[in-house]
């Protein structure tokens, strides 16, 4: 079994509303999986269950063979192995770009300041923002902030990265640089799960597309299959709607 992320029978309810109604899917190492679907379909909730920011009501999530739901699992140790990038960036406004990147290196991994900063600078360099290390988030554009957020996750050497609508809060002209960074990551062999509406990017870069609606996975396959020849009528409607 080579699945790096394995989700089994995942369910999530808020009160009486069922958001996820039994999700099974797995992601192989170095795979880029794109999750698409109408809003309210549970994509983000599913993603957030993958590092237990959202507590699943039932089901199991395995990352690199470790059961995240098991009692003995150190969730914080696992979380640093699961990078997450948010729609709203969520950079710490009281810290510089470098401070944002190094906080977990120092506090979770217990690295010294110098070592943490060397790693942090390298991570910022990977997203092309080495020279912005000393800037505060408020001094950066949205696209730059999101790239710092990617560096923050990247610096912890995650096994897998989760992207929750990483470009939805960006002005159109700033989207390209963020997608560029994601493409570089893909080429470097990073395993990624991306919830996004960037269909062009999905077509170009994804290994597999997962279509979700009403808290279930209705269809999955290669970009060519999903965009070219969708089987499920809901998928067909959704894809048709987009290409119009």
């Amino acid at each position: 079994m080579s699945a790096l992320l394995d989700v089994r029978g995942l369910r999530k309810s808020f009160g009486t509303t069922e958001i996820l109604r039994g999700i099974d899917f797995s992601v192989a190492a170095q795979e880029l999986v794109f999750v698409i679907g109408p809003s309210g379909s549970g994509k983000s909730t599913m993603l957030r269950c993958c590092n237990r920011l959202e507590e699943p009501t039932a089901g199991h999530v395995f990352v690199d063979g470790v059961d995240l739901m098991a009692k003995g699992t150190d969730i914080n140790a696992m979380r640093r192995r699961i990078g997450m990038v948010f729609q709203a960036f969520n950079l710490y406004p009281h810290m510089t770009a470098l401070g944002n990147v190094t906080l977990a290196l120092r506090k979770v991994l217990g690295k010294g300041r110098e070592e943490a900063e060397a790693i942090g600078i390298a991570a910022l360099d990977r997203v092309g923002l080495k020279e912005k290390a000393g800037n505060y988030p408020s001094e950066l554009s949205g696209g730059q902030q999101q790239r710092v957020a990617i560096a923050r996750a990247l610096s912890l050497e995650p096994k897998i990265m989760l992207f929750d609508e990483p470009t939805s809060a960006l002005d159109p002209e700033l989207v390209g640089a963020v997608l560029g960074v994601m493409r570089d990551l893909k080429e470097a062999g990073m395993t990624m799960v991306v919830v996004s509406h960037e269909m062009r990017f999905a077509r170009d870069a994804a290994d597999r597309i997962v279509f979700m609606a009403d808290g279930q996975i209705l269809e999955q396959g290669s970009p060519a299959e999903i965009f070219g020849n969708p089987q499920n009528p809901r998928t067909r409607d959704f894809v048709g709607e987009l290409s119009r």
Binding site: N51, L53, N76, A77, M78, R79, R80, R81, I82, G83, M84, F86, A88, N90, L91, Y92, P93, H94, L103, A104, K107, V108, A149, R152, A153, L156
Partner: peptide, 25 residues
């Protein structure tokens, strides 16, 4: 809430998040 989530997603504990991310802000 995003600040809590971002910090927890990098593996910081509740207390570390509170101390280093939330309280300073």
């Amino acid at each position: 809430r995003g600040q809590w989530e971002a910090a927890r997603s990098t593996g910081l504990t509740w207390l570390q998040t509170y101390r280093f991310v939330v309280l300073p802000q």
